[in-house]
Design a protein around this nucleic acid. Structure first.
Lengths: 179, 179
DNA sequence: GCCGGAATCGGAACATGTTTCACTTTGGCG
DNA sequence: CGCCAAAGTGAAACATGTTCCGATTCCGGC
């Protein structure tokens, strides 16, 4: 069913993921879909968990090569964003579900994975408290940017720009302008 | 109609704002509601613009008194958040509309007002490029936090904590811990 | 192989956002 | 005053998420 949902999202985004169609596409009855996913948002969010876990795995498989933590963070966020933007409709559907959802647990899971992607490349060893704070902030910026992009407020490229800006500010790579 | 929507949102949040009820409550026909607001999200977003403009005005009327920009920013964000959290259902409805909306122009307006609240207290004179970057980042954190709170992922207090953290990191108030 | 319960099916029914349309009311203007 | 375009009305119809339920199928344990 998750695959079916993704297929439908691929062309048409959120609106094209209609529960009846998901059922049909998955060769299953509508009631069965609702047995496993209590709402459309949940369905899309669980798909999002899978997608973003896969993304995290891919990123981990080929770690960023930057010298500084800031460089590595930007690299991983750029690659992640690029990957998401490669399927705009799908990402759009998922992000939209995320923004509206009343499904705390899955939403939290998605956020945690995103945060993990960031902390994972900061440096060896377990992240410090500050690392976690920075990562959480970056994750929030990431999400807001995606929402802005998905909602048509910002250009696709703006997401990466925002992330670079935020990373620079948070992990200041040296030349801090006058305060 | 905006008032009617707010009244309905007050108890029951997003789901309680039903277009038929809005029409009834506003003593108007359903078609008339749709003449002025092309969707439920739009209705709520326009209400959000008004609310947040009022909030901005209140904040401007009694400016924060902190010594440093960081202190003032935290103060204004705390007060703003407190104000929003005073009517959780209403804010919930509006934030949810925000997260899902496909209404770029209004969404942008809301974001701009929020950013303006922040830049307004940084220091005298027009904001520098860096100020704008910081403010945008903070606004994104603000929104993500609100979404987290509204979605039941985080405690209400978490919003302010996140904002304090982010402000500290962005406008570092001195004692930067070891990197 | 048979049984009982769980899973699935089919499909109707319901709730609510959105659209449509023919009709009426309203307010300004020549 | 009389008229017209714009605004509003009332009600039905449609689209889609969600719920329900009786009938059917599937499966693991006896």
């Amino acid at each position: 069913m998750l695959d079916a949902a993704l297929r439908l999202a691929e062309r048409g985004g959120f609106d094209a993921v209609q529960m009846r169609d998901v059922a049909t596409e998955a060769n299953v009855a509508l009631g069965t879909v609702y047995r496993y996913f209590t709402s459309k948002e949940r369905l899309l969010l669980e798909a999002m968990v899978e997608e973003i876990e896969a993304l995290a795995a891919r990123l981990e498989a080929r770690p960023p090569v930057g010298e500084t933590p800031a460089a590595r963070v930007v690299e991983v966020l750029s690659r992640g964003t690029a990957s998401l933007q490669r399927h705009p409709e799908v990402t759009g559907a998922m992000v939209r579900a995320f923004g509206a959802a009343d499904e705390a647990d899955v939403v939290r899971r998605v956020g945690d994975i995103m945060t993990g992607i960031i902390t994972g490349v900061m440096h060896d060893g377990p992240p410090t408290g500050r690392d976690l704070a920075v990562a959480r902030t970056l994750q929030q910026v990431w999400l807001s940017s995606l929402i802005g992009w998905v909602g048509g407020v910002d250009e696709p490229a703006r997401v990466v720009v925002d992330l670079e800006t935020a990373t620079d500010l948070l992990l200041g790579d040296g030349e801090e302008p006058a305060r």
